[in-house]
Amino acid sequence: MKTDKITLQKIFRDILISVLLYTLPVILMLLSFRLTGQRPWKNANNTTINRSR
């Protein structure tokens, strides 16, 4: 038993849309950092260095 062609086409199309949806929160986060000038990863590095000292 095979999946019909239209269903396979829809699956393929929706997987492409999903790739965008997966990256959306990451893109929005990076955009917010750019707009607000936040650099939280730098604070994390500083904390680690201070801790090691």
Binding site: S18, Y22, L24, P25, L28, M29, S32, P40, A44
Partner: peptide, 18 residues
């Protein structure tokens, strides 16, 4: 681990549920 809580929440919610 530096990712702010609400962004981490959104990333996990989308990644897991999608």
């Amino acid at each position: 681990s530096w990712v702010p809580f609400w962004w981490g929440f959104a990333i996990i919610a989308v990644a897991d549920d999608l």
